[in-house]
């Protein structure tokens, strides 16, 4: 039997991607004594203790709840404001449209490090510090431009004749938009939502700066594992594994559109 060279290349590449993740999963099922003491490729003393620690302690699992709350809020806000704007950019030319579009893009390029301190002061002064909405709004900085870009790319693919026919048939703009246009770009909305979810989920610098207790994201909670008695490696690994799970789940639903989404709808 002849094995194709491309299959070997892919196998090697996927192996390279998976080995570090395997090591994390492997560690999460070990006891700390085994992690630091012995060097084993599979947990010899299989334990779920690390996961129990996380799932029974509110200060741990609330981190996940907080993260999910602000990520969902951010996705909802980003998509709802980006939809009309993307429609405007894809259908009309208006005064300053090109400059506006580039200006939006620049916000995607702004280093979060530049914004960390001003955001902290801004949200503290309006009394939003340590709330979910503060993080959700802060993440709009890069997610709204991204959503506009992706949606605009998808909307371009819809022929303008559909709009015109609907208007002739007596549809008002809002009704046309919700009833006819949105179903047409449903996959685009799904992809944009996925990307908002993703970038809000993986971001740490801003969400950590803007929260202290009540809205603390899981990623920031993870730093707790460093304590006086040394690192709690097992729990750290388990927490890491649990942050990978939501992402892995949503990827499956958008697998056929991921690439198009990354290309901002321009393939």
């Amino acid at each position: 039997m002849r094995i194709k060279s491309s299959a070997i290349v892919m196998a090697l590449y996927l192996l390279f991607l998976l080995i570090p993740i395997y090591w994390l999963v492997n560690m999460s099922f070990k006891t700390n004594a085994e992690i630091t003491g012995a060097f084993t490729l599979f947990p010899a003393d299989f334990t779920l203790r690390n996961y129990t620690v996380i799932l029974t302690d509110p200060s741990w699992y609330m981190g996940y709840v907080n993260s999910i709350i602000y990520v969902v809020m951010n996705t909802a806000i980003s998509i709802s404001v980006a939809l009309p704007a993307a429609y405007a950019f894809s259908r009309y030319s208006f005064m300053g449209d090109k400059h506006l579009f580039f200006w939006l893009l620049t916000n995607r390029m702004a280093p979060p490090a530049v914004f960390a301190l001003p955001f902290f002061q801004l949200y503290s002064s309006v009394g939003l510090f340590d709330t979910h909405i503060a993080v959700a709004l802060a993440h709009c900085l890069f997610n709204v431009p991204l959503a506009v870009w992706i949606l605009e790319g998808f909307m371009r693919g819809v022929p303008k004749e559909i709009d015109e026919t609907a208007y002739i048939d007596g549809y008002s703009f809002p009704r046309f938009f919700v009833k006819i246009f949105m179903p047409l770009i449903a996959s685009g909305i799904g992809v944009a939502a996925f990307f908002c979810f993703m970038f809000s989920w993986v971001e740490l610098l801003l969400s950590r700066t803007l929260t202290s207790v009540n809205a603390k994201p899981i990623a920031a909670t993870m730093t707790r594992t460093v304590s006086a008695s040394g690192m709690d490696w097992g729990v750290l690994a388990a927490a890491g594994v649990l942050t990978i799970v939501p992402g892995a789940l949503v990827i499956w639903f958008v697998r056929n559109y991921i690439a198009k989404g990354f290309a901002l709808g321009r393939v």
Binding site: Y13, L14, L17, L18, P20, I21, W23, L24, M198, W201, V202, E203, L204, I218, A219, M222, L236, G240, T243, I244, P246, G247, A248, V250, I251, W252, R255, N256, I258, A259
Partner: peptide, 18 residues
């Protein structure tokens, strides 16, 4: 596709931790 997208969905500090 799914396996390749996996690292992209991991929070940045977890990537660091891994």
């Amino acid at each position: 596709l799914v396996l390749m997208a996996l690292p992209l969905l991991i929070p940045f500090n977890v990537v660091g931790t891994i």
